[in-house]
Write a protein that binds this DNA or RNA. Structure first.
Lengths: 130, 130
DNA sequence: CATGACGTTTACGTAAACGTCAACATGCCT
DNA sequence: AGGCATGTTGACGTTTACGTAAACGTCATG
């Protein structure tokens, strides 16, 4: 017997509203099984949701996410026709992510600098930076 | 003689529209000097713009960016009153950024897997995954 | 059986981040 | 003086990602 979830259970797990989940479905990001009119989410839906939210945190738009998930699905579904294209998309995304890694490192460094200036000033309040 | 830039020069440098730059000004993100009505951007504006765009790429909203820049300004301006608060904000942001680093690593790994599956299939097209 | 708790669809509202005119000023070139 | 590039300020339009409310179905429970 496989674990399934209602929409409210899922929304609780991921700390999003049910409205959001239904919206994602409207946008073609997930398509849970139905039992009558009720939505039933299985493990694969949960995994997909996890991917969606992760991509969102990284700033991808919902339609970008949908396209990418569809693409990966087709690739893992055996549609090797588009193999080369998928590889290109992957490399494109990889480039974006690596740019973000750099951005993060830069910002972390900036924050470190600001932090140090504050800490210094808190130790010796009189000191004015040259 | 210090380097300055017109709005179109700046927009070209950062590959954004002049409209975007004016909008950021409306939102209090940058405040260039004026010469008559014309906007004149100096090096410090350029640096600020760089910070803005970097933060944007990381998914921060414009108002978050404005608040943060203001905060950092006040901190570097000597308003040590808020020192502790600034440190808290910095730690908060640091947590977000580190979460993003994890997300990126996860996605990169996922992409690697998809890529491998495609490459394998391209080498031996007949093979079906068990 | 009525009263929640939970679910559904449909539809309008909204905040963020610009795009897209319009209508006008200003400087420079010929 | 005329023309063109470049600039300015509104003001309205658009897309994305949901929020919010209305109006209704379904099921368990007192």
């Amino acid at each position: 017997m496989v674990q399934t979830y209602s929409i409210s259970e899922l929304s609780e797990q991921f700390d999003i509203t049910a409205r959001t989940i239904r919206f994602y479905e409207d946008q073609g990001l997930i398509s849970p099984r139905r039992e009558g009119t009720r939505r039933i989410y299985e493990e694969r839906d949960r995994v997909r949701m996890k991917l969606i939210l992760r991509a969102k945190r990284l700033g991808f738009t919902l339609s970008e996410i949908r396209e990418t998930l569809d693409l990966y699905d087709s690739a893992s579904g055996g549609e090797l026709a588009q193999g080369k294209f998928v590889l290109e998309v992957i490399n494109h995304h990889r480039a974006i992510l690596m740019q973000q890694q750099n951005d993060i490192l830069d910002v972390l460094q900036d924050m470190k600098n600001v932090e140090q200036r504050i800490l210094n000033r808190m130790k010796s309040p009189e000191q004015k930076a040259q």
